[in-house]
Design a binder for these strands. Structure first.
Length: 858
RNA sequence: GCUCGGGUGGCGGAACUGGUAGACGCGCAGGACUUAAAAUCCUGUUCCCAUUAGGGAGUACGGGUUCGAUUCCCGUCCCGAGCACCA
C-alpha cells in the first residue's frame, strides 16, 4: 500500500516466485562437501477450508531458519507434503459421494496455491502425499517389518521372527527374554509337536504387529475404533461422538516394548519441557512390586501391582476389576448373583459416566485372601475403580494411605489400619483422611517398623522376593497402539488370512480398490469388506481394515530424503547424508500421537539397521496459535478467519511474513490485529525508500561513516544472535530501528545497504531479491554469504551512566568507557543533581559498576 | 485435585548473568506538507500531582534477600496447557 508508486510488491513477488521456480533455486541434492541442515514443518492435512493466517506461522519461522542456514553455507533440506489419508475426506465422500482421492487432490491444489504465494523455500521436487501408492507401499512395507519382528529385551532390540522360531525349535521359550504377554512355558519338544496353526498363534503374541481380541474404543457414529489419544473425555476427538468400550479383533503395534527407550530418549532431545512432560505422563512409568495373595479355599492366587509395598501391613482388603478373569472363579455362591449383576453393569458403563462419577461402587465377592505379611484374612471385593487394563487388574487396598481406597473403605465400612506416620509426630485415630504422602516412618509393621518409606519399600520387596510371593516390577500406563480402522480412506494392510492366521502379502503396494459406498457398515467391518472380488483375491482373503491416520505420518520425514525411490523407502546414501531432522516446527497437539509414534518407528528402524540415529526430531519448536481479532479461535464458525491470500493481495507476502513474526514470541498464542500490519507495511516502504527516491534508484557508492557502520554492525550482531534463538519478533524491531536510524542519516550507501539486504532476505525474500538485482547483482541474494559483524565498529568510547540515588534513577552522566571507578565516583559526586540529593553530606556508600550503573546510597 | 507454563501501559510486546522498566509497533493527541484527501514526515503518549522545574507511585497481590528485584526466595490470588480412580 505504502508508496505504491514505487514499491509494487505484487509485481515484484509474482516476478520472483516465477523466476525461482524457473531457476529451480530451492532444489537441493546431496552435496558431500557441505554440512547438511534439515528443517521440517509438520505437514498439513489438506482440509477443504484451506489455510488461514495461523497455519503459516510455523512455516514462516522454519523458512527463515532454512534461508539463514543456507546463507551460512549449509545444504538445507526443507520439504513439504500432505498428510492426505484420514477421516474428514471420507466423511465428505459419504455426504457427497465424491471419491476422497478427488476431493483430496482438489484441496491439495488449493493448499499449494496458498503456500506458493508466501514465498517459501520448499524443494517441491520432494513433495510426498501419504495417499499415493508410491508412498504407502513403503508404509505397508514398514508394517510388514513390524509383523516379522519381535523384541529381545536382553539386547533391547527388535530382531527377526526367524531368530525366535529357531530359538523355540532348539530351546522352547524357557530362556527367552522377549517383550510378550505370552506367559505359558513350552520346551523345544512341545514347540516342534505343535501344529503350524498353533505355532502361528503363539508367534502372534511376540510379533511387534499383532492381531488380538482387545478392548477398543468403538465410535458407532464414525463406524470405527479410535486410538486412546483420539478419545478426549469419553468422546471422539473428531466430531465429539460417544465412544464405548468393546471387544474386537484388532491389529496393534507393540509400542510398549519401547516404553523405556521412549522415556530415556527424551533426555537426549531439545524439546519443550511441557511436551516431554506430556510424553512422560503418557508413558507413565511406575516402579513397584507384583505380589501374589492366596485366596482361601479356592486354590487361586490373586496377583496385584503396588508402588507401595511398604504399606502391605495396612492392606485390609482387596479389589479386583469387574472384568478380571478370576472373578467368577473366586466368588462365593451366595454372592455370585450380585457379582455378575455388578460386572454386567460396569461393563456397559460408558467412559463418560465413569469419569464423571467417581463415587465408589462395588460388591463383595464372598472370597477372602491372606495378607502374606499379617497372615490375616481380608475380604476381596470387586469395583470399577480398579481398572482391568492397568497393572494386574487387581489391587491390595491400603485405605489408610491411599485416597481411593480410603473413600471405598468409608463407603463400605471396611477396616482402616494406619501403618505410616509422619516422622516425630503422632497421628490421631481414626484417620479422617488418607495419609498418602511418600514421607514418613513405618509402625505396626513388624520387620519394617521404624524404617522410612523409601527404605521400607526396598526391604519389603526383598522380603517378598525371598519368600517367593512376588517380584520387583515396573509398570507402564502406555497401552499397545491400536492400528486398525474400519474405514475406507487409509492404507490397506498387506495381509491375507489362511485358516484364520495372518500372512504377509509380498507384492506391494496393496492398492485401495474402488467401492460403491464409503459408508461404514456399522457392523464393525470396513466398507472394503463389501468388495468381494478384492477381498477374495488370488493371494487369499484380505484384511479389510485400513491403517490409522498416523501410519503415514510416522515416517514421512524419512521419505523426504529420497522421495521418488522405487527400490527402497529411502536410499542408504540419502539417509546417511541427511540424517534426522535438525529443527521440527509444529503444533503441540500431537504430543501423544504423531510425535510419540514417530519416535517409536524411528527406534524400530534403527534396531533393524536402516537408520544410524534413533530420535527423529533433534529440536522441536511448538508454534502458538493465532486467534481471531475477537480473541476466539480462528474458525468458520466464528466468522473471524483471516485468509493469507487476502493479506498477500493487500500488503504482500513479505509484509505478511514480517508481521506474523513481529506479533510476538513464536511459541505464544496471540490475537491477529489487522491494524498492526500497517506498521510492518510502512517499515517495508521506508526500507524501499533507502534505495529509491520515488522512481529513481538512489543508492550511492560513497564511503560509509563510522556512525552508519555502527548501526549496520549492531544490526548484524542482533539478527545473527536472534535467529538461532528463534526470537524473530525482536529481529523485526531491530530492523525497524536500523531503518529508522539510516533514514534519519539519509544514508543511501551501497556499503551499508548491501549487507542489510542479506540480513533481511530470510524474512522478506522478495523485496530483498528485487533490490539486490537493482544493485546490479546477477546471482540470487538467497545464494549470498551472511555478513559478519565487526566489534570495532560497535565499540563505544563513552558510556552514559544512569546515576541512581538509593536505587532510583535521578540523572545521567556521560563518561569515557575506560575511566576507572574512583574517577567515576568523583565525577558523580561532583554532579549538581547528586549534590542536591546529598545536601553536602557524605554518602553512606557509592556503588560503581563500570559501564553499567552508579548508585549513591544516602 | 496434581504437574508444567504464565501474569509488565489503552493494545501486541521489549528488558543481557540482579543494574536506566515500558525498546519496536499499533492506537490516541497535536503539528508540517496539500485547495483537499491519501501517502509521508515531526512532536508527545505508564499513572497521579504540578503551568514549568520537579516530585510521588508503579511489572497480579503480600512479605523477604540486596546498594539495587519484572528478574532470586516464601506465601496468596488469577489465567492458560496437560493429566485425571494408573494402585
Amino acid at each position: 500500500m505504502s508508496d505504491s508508486k514505487s514499491y509494487r510488491f505484487q509485481e515484484i513477488e509474482a516476478k520472483w516466485q516465477k523466476r525461482w521456480v524457473e531457476n529451480q533455486l530451492y532444489r537441493v541434492d546431496i552435496q558431500e562437501d557441505k554440512p547438511k541442515y534439515y528443517t521440517l514443518d509438520m505437514f498439513p492435512y489438506p482440509s477443504g477450508s484451506g489455510l488461514h493466517v495461523g497455519h503459516p506461522l510455523g512455516y514462516i519461522a522454519s523458512d527463515i531458519v532454512s534461508r539463514y542456514k543456507r546463507l551460512n553455507g549449509f545444504n538445507v533440506l526443507h520439504p513439504m507434503g500432505y498428510d492426505a489419508f484420514g477421516l474428514p475426506a471420507e466423511q465428505y465422500a459419504i455426504q457427497t459421494g465424491q471419491h476422497p482421492a478427488v476431493t483430496t487432490e482438489a484441496n491439495i491444489k488449493r493448499f499449494r496455491e496458498q503456500l506458493d504465494k508466501m514465498g517459501f523455500s520448499y524443494d517441491w521436487n520432494r513433495q510426498v502425499k501419504t495417499c499415493d501408492p508410491n508412498y504407502y507401499q513403503w508404509t505397508q512395507w514398514i508394517f510388514s517389518l513390524f509383523f516379522t519382528h519381535w523384541y529381545n529385551k536382553n539386547k533391547a532390540c527388535a530382531e527377526p521372527i526367524e531368530n525366535l522360531i529357531a530359538f523355540f525349535e532348539s530351546e522352547g521359550n524357557q530362556n527367552i527374554n522377549a517383550h510378550s504377554p505370552y506367559s505359558e512355558r513350552f520346551t523345544s519338544n512341545d514347540w516342534n509337536a505343535y501344529g503350524a496353526e498353533k505355532q502361528m498363534e503363539i508367534l502372534n503374541h511376540y510379533r511387534l504387529a499383532f492381531i488380538d481380541e482387545t478392548t477398543v474404543n468403538w465410535c458407532a457414529e464414525l463406524g470405527t475404533v479410535l486410538a486412546n489419544e483420539e478419545v478426549v473425555n469419553g468422546v471422539s476427538e473428531r466430531g465429539g461422538y460417544p465412544v464405548i468400550r468393546k471387544k474386537m479383533k484388532q491389529w496393534s503395534l507393540r509400542i510398549t516394548a519401547y516404553a523405556d527407550r521412549l522415556l530415556s530418549g527424551l533426555d537426549t532431545i531439545d524439546w519443550s519441557d511441557s511436551i516431554k512432560e506430556i510424553q512422560r505422563n503418557w508413558i507413565g512409568r511406575s516402579e513397584g512390586a507384583e505380589i501374589d495373595f492366596n485366596v482361601s479355599q479356592t486354590g487361586h492366587a490373586l496377583r496385584v501391582f503396588t508402588t507401595r509395598p511398604d504399606t502391605l501391613f495396612g492392606a485390609t482388603y482387596m479389589v479386583i476389576a469387574p472384568e478380571h478373569e478370576l472373578l467368577q472363579d473366586i466368588c462365593s455362591e451366595e454372592q455370585r448373583g450380585s457379582v455378575i449383576a455388578y460386572a454386567e453393569k460396569a461393563k456397559n458403563r460408558s467412559e463418560i459416566d465413569r469419569m464423571a462419577d467417581t463415587s465408589k461402587t462395588g460388591v463383595f465377592t464372598g472370597a477372602y485372601a491372606i495378607n502374606p505379611f499379617t497372615n490375616l484374612e481380608i475380604p476381596v471385593w470387586t469395583s470399577d475403580y480398579v481398572l482391568a487394563s492397568y497393572g494386574t487388574g487387581a489391587i491390595m487396598a491400603v485405605p489408610a494411605h491411599d485416597e481411593r481406597d480410603f473413600e471405598f473403605a468409608k463407603t463400605f465400612d471396611l477396616p482402616i489400619t494406619a501403618v505410616i506416620k509422619p516422622e516425630n509426630e503422632e497421628i490421631t485415630l481414626p484417620l479422617t483422611e488418607a495419609l498418602s504422602s511418600k514421607e514418613g516412618v513405618c509402625f505396626e509393621s513388624g520387620f519394617l517398623n521404624g524404617l522410612n518409606v523409601k527404605d521400607a519399600i526396598v526391604k519389603a520387596i526383598q522380603e517378598i522376593e525371598n519368600r517367593g510371593i512376588g517380584t520387583k516390577k515396573i509398570n507402564y500406563k502406555l497401552r499397545e497402539a491400536g492400528f486398525g480402522r474400519q474405514r475406507y480412506w487409509g492404507e490397506p494392510f498387506p495381509i491375507t488370512y489362511k485358516n484364520d492366521q495372518p500372512e504377509l502379502v509380498k507384492q506391494l503396494p496393496v492398492e485401495l480398490p474402488e467401492v460403491e459406498s464409503y459408508k461404514p457398515t456399522g457392523t464393525g467391518e470396513s466398507p472394503l469388506a463389501a468388495v468381494s472380488e478384492w477381498v477374495n483375491s488370488a493371494e487369499g482373503m484380505r484384511e479389510t481394515d485400513t491403517m490409522p491416520g498416523w501410519a503415514g505420518s510416522s515416517w514421512y520425514f524419512l521419505r523426504y530424503t529420497d522421495p521418488n525411490n522405487l527400490e527402497a523407502f529411502a536410499s542408504k546414501e540419502a539417509l546417511s547424508y541427511w540424517k534426522n531432522v535438525d529443527l521440527y516446527v509444529g503444533g503441540s497437539e500431537h504430543a501423544t500421537g504423531h510425535l510419540l509414534y514417530s519416535r517409536f518407528w524411528t527406534k524400530f528402524l534403527y534396531d533393524l539397521g536402516y537408520l544410524s540415529w534413533d530420535e527423529p526430531f533433534q529440536k522441536l519448536v511448538n508454534q502458538g496459535m493465532i486467534m481471531g481479532e475477537d480473541g476466539q479461535k480462528m474458525s468458520k464458525r466464528w466468522g473471524n478467519v483471516v485468509n493469507p491470500d487476502d493479506v498477500c493481495e493487500q500488503y504482500g507476502a513479505d509484509t505478511l511474513r514480517l508481521y506474523e513474526m513481529f506479533l510476538g514470541p513464536l511459541e505464544d498464542s496471540k490475537p491477529w490485529n489487522t491494524n498492526g500490519i500497517e506498521g510492518v507495511s510502512r517499515f517495508l516502504g521506508k526500507f524501499w525508500r533507502l534505495f529509491y527516491n520515488n522512481e529513481a534508484f538512489s543508492v550511492t557508492d560513497e564511503k560509509a561513516t563510522e556512525e552508519e557502520l555502527k548501526i549496520l554492525h549492531k544490526t548484524i550482531k542482533k539478527i545473527t544472535e536472534d535467529i538461532p534463538k528463534m526470537s524473530f519478533n525482536t529481529s523485526v524491531s531491530a530492523f525497524m530501528m536500523c531503518v529508522n536510524d539510516l533514514t534519519s542519516l539519509k544514508c543511501h550507501k551501497r556499503e551499508v545497504l548491501e549487507p542489510l539486504l542479506i540480513l533481511l532476505a530470510p524474512f522478506a525474500p522478495h523485496i530483498t531479491e528485487e533490490l539486490w538485482e537493482q544493485l546490479g547483482r546477477t546471482e540470487s541474494i538467497h545464494t549470498a554469504t551472511w555478513p559478519d559483524y565487526n566489534e570495532d565498529y560497535i565499540k563505544e568510547n563513552a558510556f552514559t551512566y544512569p546515576v541512581s540515588i538509593n536505587g532510583k534513577m535521578r540523572t545521567q552522566l556521560t563518561l569515557p568507557v575506560n575511566m576507572n571507578k574512583e574517577d567515576v565516583e568523583k565525577e558523580v559526586l561532583a554532579n549538581e543533581v547528586v549534590l542536591k540529593w546529598t545536601e553536602g553530606k557524605a554518602p553512606k556508600k557509592v556503588i560503581v559498576v563500570p559501564n553499567r550503573i552508579v548508585n549513591v546510597v544516602i
